[in-house]
Write a protein that binds this DNA or RNA. Sequence first.
DNA 1: GCATTATGTGCACACGCGCGCATACATCAA
DNA 2: TTGATGTATGCGCGCGTGTGCACATAATGC
Lengths: 115, 115
Amino acid sequence: MSRSAAANACLAVLDAAFFKAFCDPTRLEVVRRLIKLGRADIGAIAEALPQDRSVISRHLQILEHAGVAVSTREGRQVFYELNGPVIVDRLAAMRDAAAPLVEICCPGPARKSRA
Amino acid sequence: MSRSAAANACLAVLDAAFFKAFCDPTRLEVVRRLIKLGRADIGAIAEALPQDRSVISRHLQILEHAGVAVSTREGRQVFYELNGPVIVDRLAAMRDAAAPLVEICCPGPARKSRA
DNA sequence: GCATTATGTGCACACGCGCGCATACATCAA
DNA sequence: TTGATGTATGCGCGCGTGTGCACATAATGC
C-alpha cells in the first residue's frame, strides 16, 4: 500500500462529530456513568453528577445524535445506553487506518529503523 | 473478566485531552494536513488553510501538548509531525478496553453478529 | 378529575475559545 | 550591523455552547 493511499484511508475515518461527543468534560462524565451503570434512566445517570438534570438530558441527546448512545422509552422514563458496537467499530477503524500509515511512512520521533 | 473490571479498564483509557485535540474542526484540518504532508513546517501546514499562521501555530502547540504531535526546531523553522505510535496505541487501548465490555455485558440495542 | 413523577424545552447568562491583528522574539543572509 | 524570514505571544473581539432556572409536556397513581 502506498503512503498516499494509507493517508487517504486515514482521512476517511476522521470524524469530528465522534470526537466532539467525548471532548466535553461533563459529557465524558456522562459516558463514564453509562459505562458504570450500563443501561439506566436519566435520573440515575444524573444522580451523582453536579449538573442539573436538564443538562444531563441534553448531553445524552448529543451523545445519541453522535451515534454513540441509544435511548429507549419505557413509560415516563427514558433509558440510555452506550452503543458499544458502534464505538468499538469506530475505534477499530481509526486504529486500522492509522497503523499502516505509521508503519510504512511516518517513522515518527520514537522510531529506530528506517535506515 | 467481570463486568465491573471491564468497566474500570474502559474508564482508565478515557482521556479528555486526547479527544479535545481532535474535536475542533480547524484542528482536525491541521491533523489532515499533517497526514498528507508528513513532517512539515508551520508555513507549509498553514499554506492551504484559511486561518492565520498564528492560529495554526497555536493549534499545533495544542496538538503537541496533547501528545499527538511533536515538534523539532531546525534553524528558524519548526517542523511538526504526528506522533503516530502514540495515536495508534491510544486508539488500540481504547478499543481493547471497550471490546470486552461490549462482549460480556452490553449487548446493546442492535447487536450485529460480526467477528 | 387532580397530584406526582420523569423528561424535554425556551430562555438568558456567563464562560471558554477560536480567530485575526499587531508586535516581539529568534535565526539566517548580506 | 541591518534587513528579511519564520515563529511565538499579548490583546481584544465575537461566536459557540455549557449551564441553570422556570415552565411545558407526558405518563402513572390516587
